[in-house]
Structures are given as structure tokens and as C-alpha cells.
């Protein structure tokens, strides 16, 4: 773990970075319950200040340009200044969800500038479980297709005609490595499996990393964990729906557990994942 910025009283962005389906939304909900519990409503489970890095409407408002008439590469040229502007104009610390790998644009500038960043919490999950959850999120059960995406350095989400900006994910391994090879933004890495095993401990680590006043308030941590339990979130989704649920999936809060990858992927698919991502899996202590 690298220390987060010491100047947390300045406006700035905390990046919540992850490959898709790795606990990012759960983390936003946990932090919301810790920092801003009074703002939580049935329609908004995670009312943290800040949005997602791929927010097209936000970029259009800040740049004054119609991003739908720009190429994805041209948009990447605008993104560093977009985030600087978000940090500059935000009254409070911004938490911005990021599924992009850490990479630069055509001008050689990192998309996520260190000068407006307070730190990054990087969420990571066993790739066997990511494959299952990501396929479900895309509305299918073709796990081989998802595993191909996870090994494809050109894999992207959205962009072009889509409502969100293009996000370059690179491979699952490269996603992890790019965020951990860079030394501009302090990163705290949290494994999804550790969050499941001891949510309070992980939330405390996040709080301390971010120097949140609530970090060592055990009651506040316990309450946030309780309010963010999977069963509660699932019940809320069943009753009120969840705005981040893709239209083609039945529910966002699907399983919320570890181990589905072993139940649903056959030997060959698991072997393909292990072969493609062995080094990073070993670094993270993920067994095949």
C-alpha cells in the first residue's frame, strides 16, 4: 500500500478503480454508508460525490463540445483536463468510479492526472469469478466469450454511439498491472474475497488510506457494513430496482459470493484463464 496524499483538505479525486464486476459498486455503497448515510435513498444506494470516469454528459458540459462528434481518441485528449476541472469545481472530495486501465492518451498524458488525484482504491477479484459475473452483466452465459475479452488487450467498453465514453480495459492482468506499475497516484489494493471475509477490516483500511475521520469509528464502520450487506442490497433492488442495472440483465446484485467460477466454468475454461493470467494471479494469491 502506498500512502494517500497528505493534502486531503484540497479538492481532489479518489479513484475507485477496478476491472468490471470486482466489487466497485459495493465499495461505493460501503463508503456512502460510512460518509454520507443521510443522503442514501431507495433510488440512490451510493450518493457519494463524483461519478464514473466515462460520464459523457459530464465531459460535454465541461468541454463545451459534443463528444458524440469526436472520435474516441480525440475524447481521450480531453479527459485529463476534464478530471482536473471536476476536482477544481467540486466542493467536496470526489469519488470517481473507473473501469479504464491506467493508460495515456495520444498526447502521451495519463488519462488520470496525478495533480488532481488524492489516491486510488483498486478492487480486484479472482478472475474465475469475474468471468462468470461479467458474462451475467453482459446478459449471457457464454463464458468462453468473456474469457476471450479478459485476454484481449484491445478490449473496450462503450464508446462510439454508446451513452458512456470508451474505456480501454486491456487484459484482466494488464488492467491490474497498469494501475500498479504507475507511481503517480497512491494505490490501496483490496481483494474482493477479503471484503467478503472481513468487510469491516477492509472498510477500515480504506478509511485509513483516505484519512477519513470515520476510519476508526468502529460503530460507524459496523453500521456501514450492516447496511451494505448483500442480502439487504438485493432486497432493496427487488423492491425498488437499481439504476445501474443493465437493461439486459435480470438483477445487478446477483450472487455476491466467491467460488462461482469453480462451479460454472469447466476445466478447460479455468485452464485458459490461469494460463493467460498466471503471473498476476500468483501475485495476488489466487489459486487456479
Amino acid at each position: 500500500m502506498t500512502e494517500a496524499s497528505d493534502t486531503l483538505d484540497k479538492p481532489g479525486i479518489t479513484w475507485l478503480a477496478s476491472y468490471p464486476k470486482s466489487g466497485n459498486t459495493w465499495t461505493r455503497i460501503l463508503l456512502s454508508n460510512l460518509i454520507a448515510p443521510d443522503d442514501i435513498t431507495d433510488d440512490n444506494f451510493a450518493p457519494l460525490h463524483g461519478s464514473i470516469s466515462s460520464n459523457r454528459v459530464g465531459l460535454d458540459a465541461v468541454s463545451g463540445l459534443p463528444s458524440s462528434d469526436l472520435t474516441d481518441d480525440e475524447i481521450d485528449l480531453l479527459r485529463p483536463d476534464y478530471y482536473r476541472e471536476l476536482a477544481r469545481t467540486g466542493d467536496e472530495r470526489q469519488f470517481v468510479k473507473v473501469h479504464d486501465a491506467y493508460h495515456g492518451n495520444g498526447a502521451g498524458k495519463p488519462l488520470f492526472p496525478a495533480d488532481c488525484s488524492l489516491g486510488a482504491i483498486y478492487l480486484v477479484r479472482h478472475p474465475f469469478d469475474v468471468a462468470v459475473s461479467y458474462a451475467s452483466h453482459q446478459g449471457h452465459q457464454d463464458f468462453a466469450k468473456t474469457i476471450n475479452h479478459m485476454a484481449n488487450p484491445a478490449h473496450i467498453m462503450a464508446g462510439g454511439s454508446k451513452g458512456q465514453l470508451r474505456q480501454k480495459l486491456l487484459t484482466w492482468s494488464e488492467h491490474y498491472l497498469t494501475w500498479h506499475r504507475q507511481d503517480q497516484i497512491p494505490v490501496l489494493t483490496i481483494r474482493y474475497e477479503d471484503m467478503l471475509a472481513d468487510t469491516a477490516a477492509c472498510l477500515t483500511r480504506m478509511g485509513r488510506f483516505l484519512k477519513l475521520p470515520e476510519a476508526d469509528d468502529k460503530q460507524a464502520i459496523a453500521r456501514a457494513v450492516e447496511e451494505s450487506r448483500f442480502e439487504k442490497l438485493r432486497a432493496k433492488e427487488d423492491e425498488h430496482g437499481f439504476r445501474e442495472r443493465p437493461e439486459k440483465t435480470e438483477r445487478f446484485f446477483r450472487a455476491g459470493r466467491a467460488g462461482d467460477g469453480w462451479d460454472l466454468l469447466d476445466d478447460e475454461l479455468r485452464e485458459r484463464l490461469y494460463t493467460a493470467h498466471r503471473d498476476v494471479m500468483e501475485e495476488l494469491g489466487y489459486k487456479p
Partner: peptide, 18 residues
């Protein structure tokens, strides 16, 4: 002023990347 525009009551300036 945004990242690519500046504006006042009578003037507006816009820069398109590249």
C-alpha cells in the same frame, strides 16, 4: 470557462482538440 470554451455576455471562444 470550461476546458475548451470561454464565454462572457457578448463573446464565446471554442477550441476543438486538434
Amino acid at each position: 470557462m470550461g476546458t475548451n470554451f470561454s464565454v462572457n455576455s457578448s463573446q464565446f471562444l471554442l477550441n476543438v482538440p486538434n
